[in-house]
Amino acid sequence: MKLKSTGVLPGFGLTMGFTVTYLCLIVLIPLGALILKATSLSWGQFLDTVTSPRVLASYRLSFGAAFIGALINSIFGFMVAWVLVRYEFPGKRLVDAMVDLPFALPTAVAGIALTALYTTNGWLGRWLEPLGIHVAFTPLGVIVAVTFIGLPFVVRTLQPVLESLDPEMEKAAVSLGANRWYTLSRVVFPSLVPAWITGFSLAFARAVGEYGSVIFISGNMPMKTEIAPLLIITKLEQYDYAGATAIAVVMLVVSFFLLLGVNWLQARTGRHRAT
C-alpha cells in the first residue's frame, strides 16, 4: 500500500520519514534482534533454561510480589485518591504532588533508601525485627519495593474518574432514600471499577519488570529472593545470551497475556456498565 497522506499541511514527508526511521533504528531493529535470537534457540534449549528450578523460583517471586504489590496499591491507592478528591486537609497540595515521587525518583535511589530503612539498624527495621518481621533481604522486601514503584498508578488512574463523577448521581440516590454505604457500594464504586482494573494492571506490569529498586532490598539469594530480571543480567554476565533471551521472552509473553486478559476484563465490565 502506498503511504499517502490526505492532509494539505506541509511536512508530511519529513516528519513521517524521521518518525519511521527513528522508530526502526531505536525500537524495531533492537526488539527484532531479541525475536531473532529467540527463534534461533532450539526448543529443548529453551525449555531447559526456563524450567530450571532457579528460573522458576525467580518467576514465582517476580510475578507473585508484583501481584501482591499491585493489590496493596489498589486498596491504599483507592483510599488516597478518595481522600485527595473528596476531603480537605492542610498540606493536601503537597501530598498530591508527592504521589508522583516514584515516577521521578531514580529507582536505584529508591532501592538503597528502602533498604536502609528496613535493615536491622534502619529507622523502621529496628522496630520490626524484634517483632520477628524481617523485611530487608526477604520476599517481603521485594513486595515493599514494588509497592513503592507502583504507588502512583492506581491513585492517578482513579483521581480523574472520581473528579468527573456527577455529584447529581449521589444526590439522586440519597433522594431515593439510600444511606451512605448503599450509595457508595451501589452507585459510586461500580463506576470506578474499569479505572481501578487499569490502575492495578499498570502497577502490576511495572512491578514485574522492575529492577533498580528491588535488587538492593531483595538480597538476591538464588531460589529465595532472586527476581527474574536479575537472572537475565546474571546470564548475560556469563555471556549466556541464549539463556538471557529465553528468560526475557517468557517474561514478555506472560506480561503480554496478563495485560490482554486485563483488557478483556475491562472491556467486559465497560460493556456491562453501558447496558
Partner: peptide, 23 residues
Amino acid sequence: LITLIDLPFTVSPVVSGLVFVLL
C-alpha cells in the same frame, strides 16, 4: 504506528538493555 511507539513502555528495563547487548 501509535502502538509501536508505545512498545518500549511494555518492555522491562533489563530487557531493554539486553536487546542492545544482543545487537
